[in-house]
Design a protein around this nucleic acid. Structure first.
Length: 274
DNA sequence: CTTGTACCCTGACCGC
DNA sequence: TGCGGTCAGGGTACAA
């Protein structure tokens, strides 16, 4: 479910709770969420490790451990975390896949209904090679309009599809792609490489603006995303097109349209997104 | 290299 | 109440 703003919200929650904590014991109840080794060796290698920091790259969460390894988490569609002495809300956590018992007598719970998400325990070099395949961080100062233009150059795929490609740009997903394109007044079906300088400039601003605003509002709760403390985001109130098929565009009144691109819904305004 | 499709998995919802 | 189809903040493997 989560895109960059939701993952960042979760990261902040986890960082304040987990930094400095030691993992005493790990229990995996759904084996397929450990992606690159057996649950046994995963648990064994985590035992006694201290969590030094919690970081984010694109939609990945990264827990840096005191043995220089990195616990990489991908929430995909339905991954969630909660922390407590026991599961805070059992009706919301009915598919717990992993438990990490901490040295403050609390447990970090990972729940994932669809089990599309998961964990990888990586050495620094392994993570570096994964990281190298990701596009730039959209909120980093190094991410300029020129950089975006470079990433889109020569692509014939629709701009919406290009924005979802994590190798081009890391962190934007289905909601924020539609929202950024509406704010930039760009038709999501236009070939990415055909945007002119001014389009790319508008899009660059729109992407950063929408991601920043969403982080400031603790993300978007459209269906079931929740922060670590169980609270909903607030950015759903600021959505202009996502999930609003047939509703009038707030800018020009034309009914919002829905099309399917790369197998997923795109929402846009046929009136003011040229 | 690029692009499209199938697939992973479960649950909620809608129309009949 | 049941049944089938569709859809869901994601990403990968593989084919063309």
């Amino acid at each position: 479910m989560p895109e960059l703003p939701e993952v960042e919200t979760i990261r902040r929650d986890l960082a304040s709770e987990l930094a400095g904590r030691t993992i005493l014991r790990t229990r995996i109840s759904k084996p397929d969420i450990v992606l690159n080794m057996s649950p046994r060796s995963f648990s064994r290698r985590l035992r006694g490790r201290r969590i030094q920091s919690v970081d984010r790259r694109g939609k990945h969460l990264l827990l840096s451990l005191d043995d220089a390894r990195i616990l990489q988490v991908q929430l995909r569609m339905s991954g969630r975390f909660a922390i407590g002495r026991r599961v805070p809300d059992p009706s919301e956590f009915r598919h717990i896949a992993a438990r990490f018992e901490l040295d403050d007598s609390r447990t970090l719970f990972y729940d994932d209904v669809r089990r599309l998400g998961g964990f990888q325990l990586l050495g620094a070099e392994e993570w570096a090679s994964v990281e190298a395949r990701l596009g730039p961080e959209p909120l980093a100062s190094a991410f300029t309009a020129a950089k975006l233009a470079e990433r889109l150059n020569g692509r014939r795929a629709p701009i919406k599809n290009a924005l979802l490609d994590q190798g081009r740009l890391a962190g934007v997903g289905n909601i924020y792609a539609s929202e950024a394109l509406h704010r930039a007044r760009i038709d999501p079906r236009r070939p990415a490489g055909e945007l002119d300088r001014s389009d790319v400039g508008q899009l660059h601003r729109a992407i950063r603006r929408v991601l920043r605003d969403a982080i400031a509002n603790a993300g978007t709760t459209f269906r079931d995303y929740r922060a670590v403390n169980g609270q909903s985001g607030r950015f759903q109130d600021a959505l202009r097109v996502y999930g609003k098929e047939s509703e009038p565009c707030g800018r020009c009144g034309t009914p919002i349209a829905r099309v399917v691109q790369a197998g997923r819904s795109t929402f846009f305004c046929p009136g003011c997104q040229g």
